[in-house]
Design a protein around this nucleic acid. Structure first.
Length: 291
DNA sequence: GCCCAGGCACTCA
DNA sequence: TGAGTGCCTGGG
């Protein structure tokens, strides 16, 4: 990968195994606007980024090399060797080979832990457009305005202190529904220090998961999503209904308990289970497998 | 109008 | 321990 700054944008060339559409739309993040299949606006870490991907280069608009290196390289995980991961998974069986080939440009994002936590608390019993709407409502109401771009106003996701001033009623007005008290419980436990989000990455995966499970409204699935998409624990295997369906469809051929699926994933995919989950999920959802 | 959606908490055996 | 049920809300 090579990159250089031209005016207010960074032009990246030689980037293999990365596709902005697949990375953004494989269900791991919710703050993006799709302009076309290769043109997205993304909000993260208090920044607004426009990305245009072409055959041989990617342009990151409204940024500079320093910000690109400090924020966007880690966020998009641009320096990891995905080729080795994909080869390893593809070698396991034909199912994975097809799934990896189908989502060959997926990267697992390294998102902000707090925003990721609240986003996945909101995600339960909701579909992606609803989740995006609630997060946007919360950002507009409690975050700070970043800028106006393409005639849209963009707001940062509120930090813990900014969200803690909200009442349950105000959060419900953002269409969060029964999840509003869960969000406040997360604020309270993080502010009081009962749950330490900044130390998660240095904890063992099991300890980090137990830390997240202290929060009301956070169960195994949501904890795993936070661990995978924000903490960098790439061996976890978040198992939602889609992943459950695709695993049953391809591997078990019958209704299977989550615990059994987790055990299989740990044994079979090992330390790369999280990557396998993303390829399988994207493959299953796009092809509506098992539905 | 009814049912369900990218889970979880709560209840009851 | 494990299974069953309700939940805000919007869309099909």
């Amino acid at each position: 990968m090579e990159y250089r700054q031209v005016e207010d944008r960074v032009i990246v060339t030689g980037l293999q195994d990365f596709d902005i559409k697949q990375t953004v739309e494989c269900g791991q993040c919710f703050r993006y606007i799709k302009l076309t299949d290769y043109n997205y606006i993304i909000v993260a870490f208090g920044k607004v980024l426009k990305i245009v991907q072409m055959s041989n280069q990617i342009i990151f608009y409204h940024t500079k090399v320093e910000e690109f290196e400090n924020i966007w390289i880690p966020y998009f995980d641009l320096e990891k060797d995905y080729d080795t991961i994909k080869q390893n998974l593809s070698a396991k069986d034909e199912i994975l080979r097809n799934a990896v080939s189908y989502g060959a440009g997926i990267h697992i994002l390294q998102q902000d832990v707090w925003e990721c936590l609240i986003s996945f608390i909101i995600s339960q019993n909701k579909q992606i457009p609803h989740i995006k709407q609630v997060i946007q409502n919360i950002s507009e109401r409690f975050g700070e305005k970043i800028c106006t771009l393409e005639d849209c106003d963009f707001y940062s996701f509120p930090n813990v202190e900014q969200l803690w001033v909200a009442t349950e009623e105000e959060i419900r007005q953002c269409k969060a529904g029964f999840r509003a008290p869960y969000i406040l419980d997360a604020c309270q436990k993080v502010l009081s220090g009962e749950v330490n989000l900044t130390q998660l990455s240095s904890m063992s995966t099991e300890k980090a998961k137990n830390e997240l499970l202290k929060i009301k409204g956070v169960g195994p699935k949501i904890a795993d999503c936070v661990l995978l998409f924000a903490v960098g624990k790439h061996e976890v295997f978040p198992t939602d209904v889609w992943v459950k369906r695709v695993m049953e469809y391809f591997y078990f051929k019958e209704d299977t308990q989550i615990g059994k699926i987790h055990q299989f994933a740990a044994d079979y995919f090992g330390s790369r289970a999280g990557f396998a989950q993303q390829y399988l999920f994207y493959y299953a959802r796009d092809k509506k497998i098992g539905k």
